[in-house]
Structures are given as C-alpha cells and as structure tokens.
Design a binder for these strands. Sequence first.
DNA 1: AAAATAAAAACGAACGTTCGTTCATTTTTA
DNA 2: TAAAAATGAACGAACGTTCGTTTTTATTTT
Lengths: 205, 205
Amino acid sequence: MSQKSKDMPTKGEITRLAIEDAAIELFLKQGYHATSMRQIAEQAGLALGGIYNHFASKEEIFEAIVLDKHPYKKILPLVLEAEGETMEDFLQNAVKITLKEIGSEPIYMKLMFIEFVEFNGKHGALMLSEIAPKVLPVFERIIKGRKDLRVTNPALLMRSFFGMIISYFITDMLVSKSVIGKLMPKDAATAYTDIYLHGVLKESV
Amino acid sequence: MSQKSKDMPTKGEITRLAIEDAAIELFLKQGYHATSMRQIAEQAGLALGGIYNHFASKEEIFEAIVLDKHPYKKILPLVLEAEGETMEDFLQNAVKITLKEIGSEPIYMKLMFIEFVEFNGKHGALMLSEIAPKVLPVFERIIKGRKDLRVTNPALLMRSFFGMIISYFITDMLVSKSVIGKLMPKDAATAYTDIYLHGVLKESV
DNA sequence: AAAATAAAAACGAACGTTCGTTCATTTTTA
DNA sequence: TAAAAATGAACGAACGTTCGTTTTTATTTT
C-alpha cells in the first residue's frame, strides 16, 4: 500500500503528529489539566492505549509540542530579510512580519500562557532561555551603526519588542469582547507599532 | 468569647475569606484545574465538606476571588489623584502607581492568565468588560484639553496603557530566569514607561 | 449573668466519575 | 516474519460533590 520513498513518513510518524495536533487543539481550547488523554485519543482517532506507543506520558506530549511548534525558526530568518533604509522602516517590517506569522498561528502565544499558568515556568528554559541567546545577537547587529534609535540597549529593545507583540495579542484576546474593541481603530496592529516606535507623546524632549 | 461589635466579622465570614486566600495561593501556584478541593480545604484549615457551607462549587470560589480582588477599585482613585503639569508627568505617575499597586500584589495579573488559559474567556466580562466603561471616561477626561499627546484616541491610549502594564509583567515573569534578565537595566519599569511615552526611535517626524 | 435554643458551621466517610497509565492481545506495517 | 502500532479492558488513585451527624456559634429567654 505504502511507497518506499525515502522521505515518505512512516505510519508511526503520522500518528505521532496526529496526536500532537489533537493535543494542541484541546490544550488551546481548555488548557492542559482539563484535557484528558481520552479526549486526545478520540480527537486523534485512535484508542486510548495507542498514545503510549508514541509518548510516554501526557506531559511529554506537551513538551514535544513546545519544541516542534516554536515559531522563532520561521520568524527569525524572515526578520533578518526584512528590508528598510531607516530603523523605522525596518522595525515596522519586523513587527508586521512577526504579527502576521504569529497571528496566523497564535498557537505558541497561548502555549506560553498555558506553560506559565499550569506549569509555573517548569518548561520556561525550553521555551525562552534557549531562544533568547539566538535572537539577542540579531538585535545587537541591527542596532550597531544605527543613529536613529533612542533605545540602544539590545536586551531592552528585544524585551520591549517581544513585550509589544505579547501585549498586542493578549489585549486583543482579552479585550475584543469588551467595549474597548468597538472603539479601537481598525488596524490596531499599526497603531500599536506606531506607539512602540514614537511613543504616545508629542516630540518635545 | 466573641464580641458583639457591629463590624466584628462573623465566623462564617472569616472562614470564607480563609478559603478564598487558600484558593488564591494554590491557583496562582498550579492553576485552577490542578488545584483540588482537598488541597484548598487543607490549606484553609478545615474539612473538605466544610467548604460547601460557604461556596456551592469550586468555580464559585474562583468567581468570588475575581470579584473581591479586582485591583481597579484601589488603582482608579489613586490614578485620578496623580499629579503632573504635563501629560508626561501625569502618565509617568500613573504608570508608577499602577505598577506599584499591581506589582505589590500581582495576584490579579495572574488570575487573568488563569481565566484566559483555563476558562477561555468565560469570566472575561466579569474581569474586564465591566471595568472598561468605568476606566475609559477617565482616559477621556484626561485627554481632553491636552496638547502634548500624539495619541488622541482614548480607547487606544487605554488599551496601550494596559498593554504596557501587562507586557511589563509577563515579560518580567517569563524572562526573569533567562539571559535577558541579566542584561536589562535595573529599573526596567522606568525604561518601559519611557518607551511607552517616547517610543524607541529618535524624534524625526 | 446563666441557661436555653435554633441556626450556622465543621466534620469525614461515602458516592459515582473520571483520571493517567498499564497490560495482554490482536492487527498492521515494513 | 519480526517489529511496530493499535486495541480496549482493567488498575488504583484522585476528583468534585453529597450527606447524615456532631460541634460551635450567636441570639433569646430566664
């Protein structure tokens, strides 16, 4: 039935991915602890015991997802290619790319919150500490030679950049149902970027 | 044994608060679903069944906490009293007050994440929608007559203000253990406020 | 101030479910 | 044809909630 092609995924690999995908969908909807192995099995279309041929435990599924779905692998090269003469152009592009990439698949954003709420930072290193050292040099390189930046501390620029992205999504998710949403400009992302770049105040320094 | 003083809390009220406090401590540590009623009972120092004399269900405990511990009651009057000739002075004070108040008791910040992750916005109205209409007029009043603001949309100013606070705390919590923390300026809050007010770019518009 | 009394609160065993995981077995894959 | 994968019953533990009972509290009556 199956081909002998070298890069043809084996049945086990297919099932493993099906389990991960099922778990993601359920974790995002109801969190980690509220999701049962039976739900994951049903969603993935296999029997309860079958999961354990691919993952030793429920927590191992979560960890596999965290590793496999990390968005920085996709975003980092895109950001590096971001064009722009001025720092403003570059940052606007970088924000746009990041928001678009994360926004089209905000999985990881919520995974981070799940980790934060239900594991209390247990996998923090897995999610962030290993990434920061790889991303920080990028910010350092970008900053070098730029004359149009008020903020020259790479770590601060990086943290506030991440913070802005995170803040955009969480206020978006928390606020969208409330009054504020209706009063917001249509392209909130652009407005957010603008504030990040120029601040809320008029220039007066 | 007990006094007849009018504002002397009754035994029931004391126990009810003890249950809430115990639940908060556990919810913050391990989330909602991972916390059992038995753990809450033990932490509060009473028997399992006793809880149900004060709360009809586990979820009712969570809702009571959300209502009782909402920080806007404390923060709003403080912000209204914030002094400052210029908008910059005022906003800096407002940020300082909010961060100090929330920072000294970041309970609610994390409660919001728990709600977000484990209830998927079920109590969103309880936490935000009822608050926004009360806070928005404050921002509207503040903006009125100010000439030194680039951002004049009250909803946007309010959302970005909240966003900044949220972003500060979440990056603080997520990042503190990683490399970035060690490279950050000591007073990250001030740096964050500065970016919010002036942006990361040099004035050039 | 003491005694009586009804309501409130605390107790912990028990209930029915559901949980994550294991296991012996069968089926499918390579 | 041996290994990998799938099956579903079964395990013990833990879950939220209920319940009958006892103890404590707060108020009323002496």
